[in-house]
Design a protein around this nucleic acid. Structure first.
Lengths: 229, 229
DNA sequence: GTCTATACCACGATAGAC
DNA sequence: GTCTATCGTGGTATAGAC
């Protein structure tokens, strides 16, 4: 998006030197709020971030959240939906192209589930690892208010991945296929979220410089796991 | 614990008919608070439960939390620590008994990681599925304040399971072993936490009556996944 | 239509009386 | 040990400026 960057540069060099970083990206308050809220939510979690922190950083008034979104909950919905919806659409798109007559169909199913997440993370070069945390917060949220958003989109995704797995492995039960999808989602979200922490927890014994290694390890782990009877 | 139950019965039948259920279990305010807080945290999450809700249900004063624990954060620490510590101790105990010369050592490693969690859940027959949610909230918490508690205990657990995996599979790297433990933890926590939701999300196509099936599916999934090169 | 100022109630924390 | 009172902060609702 070169236009956006150019506009951002001009705006920065002209006037807004003292403004917070993220208030320069767009003039629209609503979009600034989504961007800023997303960054803060990723870093600290949904509850730990106050609306006043968000509106201050976004150079907006406190009441702007209520006007544009209705409530903090609805702001969370907007942020989460913006992130999860394209990922799930991409997942279903990739799933449609799978040829189940081939022996590698499980691998393709895993990639259809995993790739959209990693792609979404890598495309946001500016947000860096923050995006990882936000999207894994969404996938495996223990917050009822967030998971209720995910659940609206997830039944279709879950059902289609269960169908795909049972097509690839006709001998396993529907229950087993359901559980395999949950295991896959859990391994993905957990490793993605605690990826940074691993560097600290392992006390130097774990060191990776890119998520490519994480992804390839995850893929082989899931392929074997799903193939388990 | 027959004594406790007897005492509870006598107390109930004598005086405290109108008191909330969980304020009858023990006379000590501090213990009542831990029990009640654990139940509420499991159901709604740490942030969604206010101290006033906890103290009301535990028949205690609001300031009692601050007196006995110091703060809400410290109450969370007490609840989480009470749950996670025995599980991790049991994990390390089981890990010590593994004979790595045998081909089934990976299976034993998986059981050493998984079994203490399921055992802890099943032993709490009264709390039912609430305990599942609480313990999986702890394992895969995206809340920095909670994960900071886990991290204090987890480095030793992580290091020993990484050692165990590298003993069983000498050909894999330390990085790979670290990631495999994270995948295992994620699959466990995610499936445990969303176990109930699966019934709703799948719209009738997923139905399990006991966690035995979940556990056996999880074990075979993880064994195969960890064995993946 | 957008945005602001402001008031309101619930929450966590703390001090001090009993 | 326990309780009441109070403070600062948080989310929310509304009236009104532009």
């Amino acid at each position: 998006m070169p236009f956006k960057r150019l506009f951002e540069f001009l705006l920065t060099s002209m006037i807004a030197k003292e403004l917070p970083v993220n208030s320069r990206t767009l003039g629209l308050t609503k979009e600034r709020l989504i961007v800023v809220a997303g960054e803060l939510f990723a870093e600290r979690g949904f509850d730990a971030v106050s609306l006043r922190t968000i509106t201050d950083k976004a150079n907006a008034n406190l009441a702007a959240v209520n006007y544009h979104f209705g409530s903090k909950q609805d702001l969370i919905v907007a942020v989460v939906d913006d992130i999860v919806r394209p990922v799930n659409e991409r997942r279903l798109f990739l799933l449609d192209d799978i040829d189940y007559s081939r022996s590698r169909s499980i691998k393709e199913i895993v990639h259809a589930f995993i790739d959209p997440v990693f792609d979404a993370c890598n495309s946001e070069s500016e947000s860096d690892n923050k995006y990882y945390k936000l999207i894994s917060r969404c996938i495996a949220s223990r917050d009822e208010r967030v998971s209720s958003i995910i659940i609206k989109q997830f039944p279709e995704v879950l059902a289609k991945f269960v169908d795909a797995i049972t097509k690839a492995l006709p001998e396993i039960s529907s229950n087993s296929a359901h559980l395999k999808v949950m295991f896959m989602a859990g391994a993905l979200a957990h490793s993605l979220f605690h990826y940074e922490s691993l560097l600290l927890i392992s006390e130097g014994r774990f060191e990776l410089n890119s998520t490519d290694v994480l992804k390839s390890e995850l893929v082989s782990f899931l392929i074997r796991g799903i193939n388990a009877s």
